[in-house]
Amino acid sequence: MSLQPKSNWELIKNGMFGENTIFRMAISLCPSIAVTNGMKNGMALGIAVVFVQTMVNATISLMRNFIHPKIRIPIFMLVIAGYVTIIDLLMATYARPIYKEIGLYIQIIVAFASIFARAEVFASKNKVWSSICDGFGMGVGFLLAMLVISFFRELLGKGELFGYSIIAGNPLLIMILPAGGFLAVGLLMGFFNWVDMKYFGGKGASGV
């Protein structure tokens, strides 16, 4: 975190691009490979993460003066688990078909490094409103990453987008298999680092 306070818009932008969970920080990579074989699944998980991340950051920030530093980790866990249970039950009730496919990964949001890291490094030290902006930005960054990865994987691997057939012919079956997930994440990460270095004067992933 930089020393001078950032504006709320800067915090959101930072979460979306500068410290993008998957492409820049390279954390929470498990769902980026497991759930991105279709855009529908990727988007559903991304929205769930936006909700959990924003609410966790808000709650931790509200409680930051009452949490004893020695037991902060269990308390973070409890708060995260609470919100994950809420979104889990909500999706199980109102989004049954998607929940059947990605239900396991909704529950696994409890263990996401990105949510835990933001609670620790940001929400427990900052005011409520900026914590909400930070959590929302990080969540949207994750959602965008999931959409980009699943766009290429579904388009190349099935020839479809959101389940609608786009291109005919023989699709590259490997792209919807786990190996294709690693390929897509690696190549896209390299591409975004290249864009950052070429057009925004960044130093790539090593210089974050």
């Binding site: 023989n170 699709p171 079956l173 490997i174 298999l177 190996a179």
Partner: peptide, 10 residues
């Protein structure tokens, strides 16, 4: 290997 996994029939 990429081709064999991508296009098992062809």
């Amino acid at each position: 290997a990429f081709l064999l996994i991508s296009f098992p029939k062809l």
